[in-house]
Write a protein that binds this DNA or RNA. Structure first.
Lengths: 236, 236
DNA sequence: CTTGACAGGTGTACGGCGTACACCTACCGT
DNA sequence: ACGGTAGGTGTACGCCGTACACCTGTCAAG
């Protein structure tokens, strides 16, 4: 229908389309190659055209973040608070894994898009309705830190670089070159420790999902214990 | 001595001097205003001069990170592992607080300067000598994540923006504007919860140091419990 | 049917960035 | 005396974000 050959007239550009293209670009090519010029080209449009729909690059990034945060499943199961929180956080994690650039982007912002605030608020609500005091809930949010948004926060982050065009993006830097292992013997020791009896692990060795849940449960169990023994700020 | 007036000939530039100036600049003006051109000017030198001492900006950043990590006190007290780790991490935290740009810089790097590896290795060594299995030590390192480097990782990060020239850098955004509080009632509730009986807190209300130690102890206590009950990877 | 406002895409230009590359110059060991 | 070399300089390129003036198609009011 319509659309003669003369002027190809792409679908007419809109904030929505810009955001989706930007996210797709960041997902596949890495956040560092998301420039206004790049993005415009992807949309078949001149760079300045974007500014009719977003204020500037920072606002664009904020909007992208909000869209990712919006992917987090916050449907509330009526189990106990611990399971509810656990589920929410694991959902957050999977959203952030679909968009590896998002974690760093969120941290770089001084803070708090409305979507993030809304999500945090819902988490706090769950804690409170689970019987935690406002005080304890406060400390818990700090303790969870960005983990509540699903950040693996690993330091040795395997995902981060993301991108690559091909489907196989090099499985891993492969264990550890021996001269490095020699200089850091204890790291070398534990690097191989966890993969010993587990078949699901292929690369240099650790199951990110397991590690994430290990830490998460460590925190959740500790929190539950505090709650059960009626924690108050009797410290300091 | 020497140094006539004709050519002011600043102290002759060196990798050391570049690094120190770069760190000072990042500390006081913020990492985003550390450019090669800026830094060169600060040193009274033309930008390209820097490249005789550092390979490029990335290498410069890595070296800056290494210098900050080098500030972490790793002297080993012969108390138990838990106290040793605790002390190390709190020292890391104070180093990172002196250089607010460092946390983000470290996370942006795909990973691991030698100094960081060395530090991590020493932490693992302490865990192992405290009797933790290699396996458990591995998971513990993941669970601690970047907290082992003293990251507050707060999400609502009060420090980050850093810089400012004057001594008073605005104490805090002041609690929460009421229309925001209305939209996020649970956040509003806990935002004020923790400051109730504590005089040491002035701003909008939380004692970062306390929160950090709260989370740290939650993790350490949980780990100790696992160790005491002889944890093995009997999960999954 | 004319008109004029306005939303949305365009073109040009500016200042800043990292850094490649050719150069110059002062010093040093032979 | 001299050639090499370490270290500072100058110019230039291609990228970035974006200010600002401009054009063009659409549509409502006269």
């Amino acid at each position: 229908m319509a659309e003669q050959a003369g002027t190809p007239r792409r679908t007419p550009l809109s904030r929505e389309r810009i955001l989706r293209t930007a996210i797709a670009l960041a997902d596949t090519a890495g956040i560092e190659s998301l420039s206004m010029r790049n993005l415009a080209q992807e949309l078949g449009v001149v760079p300045m055209a974007l500014y009719k729909h977003v204020a500037n690059k920072d606002e664009l990034l904020d909007a992208m973040i909000d869209m990712v945060v919006g992917e987090i499943d916050t449907s509330i199961p009526d189990t106990d608070w611990k399971q509810a929180i656990r589920g929410r956080i694991l959902s957050a994690r999977s959203a952030l894994q679909r968009h590896p650039w998002a974690a760093l982007a969120i941290e770089s912002r001084n803070m708090a898009t409305p979507a993030i605030l809304g999500y945090l608020d819902s988490v706090v609500a769950t804690l409170r309705s689970g019987g935690l005091s406002a005080d304890l809930a406060h400390h818990v949010m700090h303790a969870m830190g960005s983990r509540v948004l699903g950040f693996s926060q690993e330091l040795f982050d395997t995902a981060r670089d993301a991108g690559r065009s091909g489907p196989a993006a090099a499985p891993q830097p492969a264990a550890m070159p021996p001269e490095v292992a020699a200089r850091f013997p204890h790291l070398a020791e534990i690097a191989t420790a966890a993969s010993h009896d587990d078949a699901s692990v292929v690369g240099s060795g650790c199951d990110d999902q397991f590690e994430f849940e290990f830490a998460l449960d460590l925190l959740l169990d500790g929190i539950e214990r505090l709650q059960q023994q009626g924690w108050t700020s009797a410290h300091r």
